[in-house]
Design a protein around this nucleic acid. Structure first.
Lengths: 258, 258
DNA sequence: GAAGTTCTGTTGTCCGGACAAAGGATTGAC
DNA sequence: GTCAATCCTTTGTCCGGACAACAGAACTTC
């Protein structure tokens, strides 16, 4: 007689009502990965759970194994699943929120439930300094767009944002800048952002800065410089921002590249 | 008679001497992606170059299209290539260096050519405070390992590092801590890091801190808190670090998730 | 000459199958 | 009981093919 009985390892995905709509234009692997992600999100798949094996899952859903693998892979890339050869695919033991995205302060604040407000202080054109020219990849002295904004939350200043953009890239009207964030305007202009190079540091506030942000003189500030590139490699934005360290910090999650 | 002649678009990969070794245990897609990456790195494939189409490339290398696609995809994920349906695959217009890794300060300094030095100030065990317990996922009052280190470069203090680890995870001998970085010790103990949650901020130095770091009183400091998880979801480290803002800033590249 | 239409080339998605490699559990030998 | 060898399960890699979707160029029509 076998000493077993210990076989509680029922495939947890069976009770999940997974299913794909083949008439939808949404790719099958994407439909599946979204359903799995939602299941993890709402706790139907708890951390540590072992997903049933790919072949069986594919068979049950009427999909091929490559398609199921593609769905799982996308979640592995997001850090939600972990695969182990010979073992199976496991829901990662929670803690994953969102792996560092190229987000604007505006989106961050809005997501945090704070109603961001923008005050445009300058919106003009000026010749590029050597530093700006190098960052944007234009010639020194070329005209670039300059935008200076004060970002507030709950009526309190949070950050002072200074951006330079290649002139003519975007029509930046002050009302639109006050209504939303810069990145949203870019996306709306069908500029597809690709990557950014950032530098985060700290320094003491100058007299001007402390006054503008409502901080005592010499208060510590968080600084961020960022050059953003679109998918053709053009630099589309160079920002030099300062944040009130007493009110703001950068939070992010990052994944180890396997 | 065709008006053409305009056909300078020779596949740039033909002159690249690509080829795979089927007897090698290294996966074919990986061999190919490495060769392509090397070619981009050394400038043999210049930014903007259009790779030949996948099918032809697969045929020339004696590989199947899925294998070639897998190789290309890995470089797209790294941000080195951009694909456009109906157009082709293009080398991204440079600027990409390295997309933010979970690196230790030690590695960063070493890569920058500075010889990092570590002075272990404390290496002991203590009961977990509420904050530490929450971060590490242990009970309050449980014993955790505490390591306090001063990190120097060129003999100058750069950062003050305070780490808590679940006790018993690693045997942290002071000599080993002074010889290398914490993450390397973890990897050596075959702990596979998976993700980390970070928070970067700034504040003014306390009297103690300013003295330890050789900064004037009240100088702005860059702060970083990080909880690191391994692939089983365990928290393996909780760090609270402070950096001299006058000497150090965080530099990183990040990619937009498509 | 300008606008719409068709055509062509390329990547995106999906299928079904096959074998290799690794991890864990079981079995066997001592 | 302990250790090594074996088996089984699962993911990793690779193949060959098919059609869809999209972008751009060429062509036709007005």
């Amino acid at each position: 007689m076998p000493k077993s009985v210990a076989k509680p390892a029922v495939d947890p995905t069976v009770s999940l009502q997974l299913g794909v709509d083949r008439s939808s234009p949404v790719p099958l692997y994407f439909q599946l990965s979204q359903q799995l992600e939602a299941a993890i999100e709402r706790g139907a798949l708890t951390p540590g759970t072992l997903l049933g094996n790919e072949i069986e899952l594919a068979g049950r859903l009427g999909l091929s194994r490559p398609t199921v693998r593609q769905a799982i892979q996308s979640l592995v890339d997001k850090g939600l699943l972990v695969r182990r050869r010979g073992v199976g695919t496991q829901v990662v033991h929670s803690q994953v929120k969102r792996p560092l995205e190229l987000s604007s302060l505006y989106d961050d604040l809005e997501a945090a439930g704070q109603r961001p407000e923008t005050r445009v202080l300058r919106n003009t054109v000026e010749p590029a300094s050597a530093e700006v020219a190098a960052a944007l990849g234009v010639a020194e002295g070329d005209e670039v767009h300059l935008v200076e904004r004060l970002r507030l939350a709950h009526g309190e200043p949070m950050a002072y944002l200074r951006n330079r953009l290649p002139s003519g890239l975007l029509d930046l009207e002050t009302p639109r800048l006050e209504a939303t964030g810069l990145y949203r305007l870019m996306r709306a202009a069908s500029i597809t952002l690709h990557s950014a190079r950032q530098s985060v540091g700290a320094r003491a506030a100058t007299a001007d800065e402390s006054e503008r942000l409502g901080e005592p003189a010499g208060a510590p500030l968080l600084t961020m410089q960022r050059t953003t590139f679109d998918d053709t490699g053009r630099a589309v934005e160079f920002g030099s921002h300062i944040y009130r360290a007493s009110r703001y910090s950068f939070e992010f999650q990052l994944l180890v590249r396997p």
